[in-house]
Structures are given as C-alpha cells and as structure tokens.
Design a protein around this nucleic acid. Structure first.
Lengths: 233, 233
DNA sequence: ACCTGAACACCGTTCAAGT
DNA sequence: ACCTGAACACCGTTCAAGT
C-alpha cells in the first residue's frame, strides 16, 4: 500500500498510475474501486468523476501498459541493424514490460476491447517486415500471427472488435481513411489479404491456417536443431 | 441456462460438469456459487458439501478440461508416423479443446496451482521427443517450452508450484520416487538439466534463455520462408 | 449425510446531497 | 466542479439449524 502523495487533485492519469502500482504490488484482484480509492486517500465514488466505471478502469490499465511498451521498444530501437534484430529487440523489450506487470496477459484476454495503442504496434511490426525486410504482406501477416505472443507478451487477435478509431468513429469510409493515414501498413495488409481468397474464417483471418503455419515453423526449427545436435542420427 | 436433469443426488463430477457447461455458455464470470447452484436446482450452500469452496471449483474446472484434452489427444494419436506428426496432431487436438472452452487460457494463468493431469501431458510430449525422435533431454526441454503454448493451448511454466503429487505428499525423496515412477521422462529431464549448469534462474529453468531460443526458432523460420518467397532477393 | 436459511464482509454502482 | 454517505443488488463464505 503506497503512501499517498500530497493533496493534488485527482485525474484520470493519477488514478490509472495508482491502479498499475496496486496491481503490480498486490495483484489484479486487489484493484477494487474501494481499495484503489483508499490508496489515493479518497472515497470510492470519487473515482467515477474521472472514469465511467470499473470496465473503463481495466481498459485504462491496458492502455497505460501498451504505452509503456511503446517507450520501452523505442528506447532500444536504434541498436537494430536489420529486420531480424529489430524484431528481436522488440520482443525482448515487450517481455521486460510484461515481467514488470505479470497481470497484463490475463487481463488482456479477459477484455473484449482492443487497447487504444495496440494497432500502432502492429503497424510498426509490419513496417519492419515490409520496408526493412522486403516481406510480402501475405507473409508479414503470417509473421504477425506467429510472433504475436512474443512481440506483445500476450495472445491477441487483431481486429477482433473495432480496432483503431473508436469514439469519434464516423462512416466506414472515414474510418478506413483514418486508418490508412495513421496505420498505413495495417491498412495495406488488410487490403492485400482481403482480395487474396474467399475462404477466410473469422472475418478475413483464417486462424486455423495461421495456427498451422506457426506450428510448422516451430516443428521445422526443432527438427533442424535436432539434426544439428546429432549429425550422424 | 440448461434445464436441470432429474433429481439425481449431487456429486463433485456433476457439479464440475455443470460448471463447465455454464462457463461455455455464459462465460467464466457467470460461474458463481449461487448461479451454478441455481443451474443444478439447489441452494448455493449445498455445493460446499462436494467442493471446499470457489478456488477448488476453479481448480476442478481446469482438471476437467485437462482430462478432456487427454482423451482428445488419445483419439488421434494412432495416426502419427513420427515425432513431428505426433506433436502436430497433439497441438491440433489441444486447439480444438480450447476452441470449445475459450475461458480456459485466462483461468489457467490466473490460478497458481498446477492442474492434476498436466504433468502427465508434459511427460507424454517428452516421451515423443526422446523415445520416438531421439532428442536429448536438453533439447527436449527447450522444445517443451517452445511448444508449450501450442501443445496445451495456454502458457504455463511447469513446476511453478508442487506439480505431480500434491495431497498425499510425503518426504521429498518419496515425492521424487513417485514422480520417477509415474512421470519417468519428466524426472529424467529434471535430473539431466539440474546437473548441467549453475546459472539457472527461477529454480532450474532459465526462462530468459528459453524465451530467446523460441524467439530464434520463429525468426529463423520466418527468414527461411522469406527466402523461399523471394529467391532472388 | 446432505441440504437449507439467515447472516457477515465484501463488491460495483446509483442517487441525492453536500461544498 | 468535485467529492461524499447511504443504499441497492450482488458476491463468497460461516454457522446453526433442519431432515
């Protein structure tokens, strides 16, 4: 239970920062409107002036951590010489953030909404693959699924709900235009993959095919590692 | 809300089966002592005669699903010609079970205890790798971590707590002996890896090293797939 | 032995009231 | 505008009581 600082007025950011600290220290189940308020030296009902409710608090927790992951990735992005090293550093940075906040993966797949900053991470990974690595959007799409768990520290299907713009969503065309501007590679990938075939499950992702692709990568890699350890066998 | 069947007396298995149905139909947050009791046509307090409490109910849910995964894997295990196909079929079977019970991964890493049947799955995977594939225990250990997510449908560090024998645990030596009898490959792997080096983090697993190994497999595989799609580039 | 009702301590949230 | 207290509907669980 952290000591409450001064008497600054409450704000959304201050509430979320205190909630992250509370979850880190005592686990997510300790993040209760009443206990969080007590940690801030305030009554539970005061929190409702800065967040609409518990659900918004949980979504805000994930937004906060996704933003932290962005700064962690940016801090080391200069070291990378090629796409492979860039992705490796990104995954290691994501892992460090998750080790600081072990409650994040569980919360992530409990929520149905997509954290606000997440599509930007997907777009950045695609940029590395397509621009630096010269990947096709098709293979980059598969890479995104294969690396998803490790690049972000949790399993998350992109585009499960309305990723990207949410509150100020206008017509579909406006949303698509906004996405193309902010998330150019994500938009290009969706466009490329949507016209590729008609057999998609679950919207335009064939999650069974993605699963089998990732599984094949791992099994091929293990077979190669095995061949290397027993050249004669 | 399923119609309650007959008037058979309650039992642990009947309670757990109803809880799985309730979680499948309405989500894990609907699995409440009061609502589960209502689905069984009984008062909430009656459940305490068959399960010690909510925690035991949640652990029982996972035990039930892990057992279901065992039968799903066994149903297709005859088709496999080699270790690679055996593991592939196992992962596909695990995935099918998880698609039936999408609340399992979230519950799994919320719990601290290890489901009763889980070590047996690890032992079976090791048996495939070591006996059929001729893997060393060292590489089999890494393969277990690399495939963990896909082979079981969730991320789970083995041996986080007291895996294997739990209630009737005697001395450490007795536990080790029981493990060697029931889970021979798991016991052999722990023995082999424990003497290999002194730099282990988190008990005898160096989870950072396992993470980097898996990451390398995926990046190597993506590089190879990229080389295959652009032979000239 | 198995099931029950009332009660306790907690939770998220609403609402009318304070300043 | 920001914060509060009382209240409501829910939760897991204890306990004494029923059969």
């Amino acid at each position: 239970v952290p000591a409450r600082a001064g008497r600054r007025p409450l704000s959304r950011d201050r509430v979320l920062a205190a909630a992250v600290d509370l979850a880190d220290a005592e686990g997510l189940e300790a993040v209760t409107m009443r206990r969080l308020a007590a940690a801030l030296g305030v009554e539970a009902m005061s929190l409702y002036h800065h967040l609409p409710g518990k659900d918004a608090l949980l979504d805000g927790l994930l937004d906060t951590v996704v933003a932290e992951m962005g700064t962690a990735v940016a801090a080391r992005s200069g070291e990378a010489a090629d796409w492979r090293e860039a992705l490796r550093l990104r995954c290691l940075s994501a892992r460090e953030v998750m080790l600081r906040h072990p409650w994040v993966p569980g919360l992530m797949n409990a929520r149905t909404t997509v954290p606000a900053g997440l599509p930007r991470h997907y777009d950045a990974i695609l940029a590395t693959l397509v621009e630096d690595g010269g990947f096709s959007y098709h293979l980059a799409h598969r890479a995104l699924h294969a690396l998803g768990t490790m690049a972000l520290g949790f399993v998350q299907e992109p585009f499960a709900a309305g990723a990207g713009a949410a509150d100020d969503a206008g017509t579909d065309a406006e949303v698509a235009a906004a996405m193309a501007a902010d998330l150019p590679h994500l938009a290009a990938m969706v466009a490329a993959e949507s016209h590729a075939g008609d057999e998609q499950v679950l919207g335009w992702c064939d999650s069974q095919a993605e699963f089998e692709f990732t599984l094949g990568l791992l099994l091929d890699g293990l077979a190669a590692a095995h061949a290397a350890e027993t050249p004669a066998g």
